[in-house]
Structure formats: C-alpha cells, structure tokens
Amino acid sequence: MTSSNSQFQTETTDGALGSPAVIAFATQKGGMGKTTLSVLVASWLHYKRRIKVAILDVDGAQLSVYNQRIRESQQIQDDSHASAKLEEQNIEPYPILSGNPADVPELLADMPEGIQVVFIDMPGNIDVAGYETALKTVDYLIVPMETSEYSVTTGINYLNAIQEINLLPVERCRIVWNKYKPSRDGELADLLEERFKTIGLECLKSRIPQRDSYQDSANRSTLFPMPVNYLRNSGLKDLFPEIEMLLNLTAKPISDEE
C-alpha cells in the first residue's frame, strides 16, 4: 500500500470553534458516503440529542440532501402514521438550505437563530467554483476513506491539495474509515493510522462498517433519526458521541434506550 508524499505543514490553532460550529464530510472520490454520513449524524444529533443543526447542500450537481427533504416532506403529507410520528417528536425539522459553494458565507450569516452545528454537503470536485470559499468556513473536515490503495491515495491527495492552498490546518482534519470490515481491513487500517500520525493527521476512533442498509429511507432520513434498534448494530453508535466530543457540544442526557 502506497500513498502520495504529504506536503502537510502543521499550523497552530487556538482550538476555538465558530458559532455555529461548521463541519463537512468531504472527499473527491465518489461513493465514500460523505452525504450519507452527513444526514445520519445531523438527524441523530438534532432529533435524539436535541442539538440544533442545519445542512447546507452546496453540491450543485446533485443537491441530493435538499431534494431528499422535498421528497420526504411530500411523502409525509400522504402518510398519516408518519405525520403523527413527526408530530410526536415535538421538534421542528432542521433547515436544509441549498446554493453554490460561493454562497456559504452568506448562508451562514443568515442561519436561523440558535443553530449549534452546520453540516456542509460539499461538491465532489475541489475545482468547482467557490470550493475554497466554502471550505474556509469549516471548523472540521472529515474525510471518509476505505483501506484500498486507490481510496487512500485519493483521500491523501485531496488533503494535500487543501493544505497546499492553506484552506484548513491539518489539526482540523480527520479521516474516518468507512465501509470497514474488521477481518479484512483491521490490520491495514492500524498500519495506515500510524503512518498518518507521522504527518500530523488523525483518524476518528469510530470505524463505520459496510452496510447497504444505511441507504434505506427509514435509516437515512432528514425528518427522523436512525431507529434505536438498528443503531445498536449499525457501527454508528460510537460515531455520534465522538462527533459531539470533537465539536464540544452540549446535548440532552442519553437515555437507556440510546
């Protein structure tokens, strides 16, 4: 397994996050789950942990999150059971705003009062107009990777490009292993993490397993959190609190069912 030579230059930061905190799951390789992870984490934090979130969908080629909310809202009008369930949640759906990457500073300035965390669904191409403008607003960038040589090389090249143009210091970047199979990937992931440390790059402790069911509408909803009974075996149970700790969030106490 090889990867490109890193150009990372460690920069000092004061550790302070903006208000609201801004986070992006992003990479240039398609199929890494950046949008799915954004929705899963945002919905859990908002609906179960009562942390007020918003999503900015600036992936103009697809606007998949923004369009998903439109579809879900239309579908729920025709489903009395789902409508009642939404009302029982007793919390307004989090806002999903759309635009282009260059619009992000303006969208953040117009964010509804009380929002604690904003997730940005970024384009899959760093060369899109306004990409730099959007990424400069981010407090933490999380890059989903698989352990394959192509995925690692693409991810590291993406992070190098960000460092080379001084968009985000390495201390604000993390890698998360996605589509992970312990029997196949465990030893290699451990080895890669040690190599990443030599360039000042950290991995999240959470490793997200391969699960096609993350795409199921009941699990990846912008109106409801992932069902607790599914979460227990999803591999995501550790990711949600790790994001809370990373962003220094204050949430409602965790109940026994969670």
Score class of each variant (00 low, 15 high):
M1W: 09
T2C: 07
S4H: 00
S4C: 03
N5F: 12
S6R: 07
F8S: 03
T10I: 14
E11I: 10
T12W: 05
A16E: 10
L17E: 01
L17T: 01
A24T: 15
F25M: 06
A26P: 07
T27A: 13
K29F: 01
G30E: 05
M32I: 06
G33E: 05
S38T: 15
L40P: 06
W44R: 11
H46N: 10
R49K: 12
I55R: 06
L63G: 01
S64T: 15
S73Q: 15
S73H: 07
D78F: 13
H81Y: 10
A84M: 09
K85T: 15
L86E: 03
L86H: 01
N90I: 04
I91W: 04
P93M: 01
L97K: 02
P101H: 10
A102Q: 14
D103C: 08
P105M: 06
L108G: 12
A109Y: 13
D110A: 15
P112C: 11
G114V: 03
I115Q: 04
I115M: 07
V117R: 04
V118N: 02
V118L: 04
D121V: 13
V128H: 01
A129R: 02
Y131F: 15
T133F: 02
T133M: 06
T133N: 01
K136S: 12
V138G: 07
P144Q: 06
P144L: 03
M145V: 15
S148R: 01
T153D: 03
T154K: 00
T154W: 00
I156S: 00
I156R: 00
N157S: 14
Y158I: 11
N160D: 08
A161H: 06
A161D: 11
I162E: 04
Q163D: 14
L167D: 03
P169T: 05
R172K: 05
V176P: 03
W177F: 15
K179Q: 12
Y180L: 01
Y180E: 00
K181H: 11
P182C: 07
S183W: 05
G186P: 06
D190V: 15
L191G: 09
L191S: 11
R195A: 10
F196Q: 00
T198S: 07
T198E: 08
I199F: 10
L201F: 01
L201E: 00
E202F: 03
L204R: 01
S206C: 14
R211F: 09
Y214L: 13
D216Q: 05
S217Q: 13
A218D: 15
A218H: 09
R220T: 11
R220W: 04
L223E: 12
P225F: 00
P225C: 01
V228Y: 10
V228L: 14
Y230H: 08
L236Q: 05
K237C: 03
K237D: 07
L239C: 08
L239Y: 07
F240W: 07
F240Y: 13
I243Y: 08
M245A: 13
T250E: 11
T250Y: 05
K252M: 13
K252Q: 14
K252W: 09
K252N: 12
E258H: 10
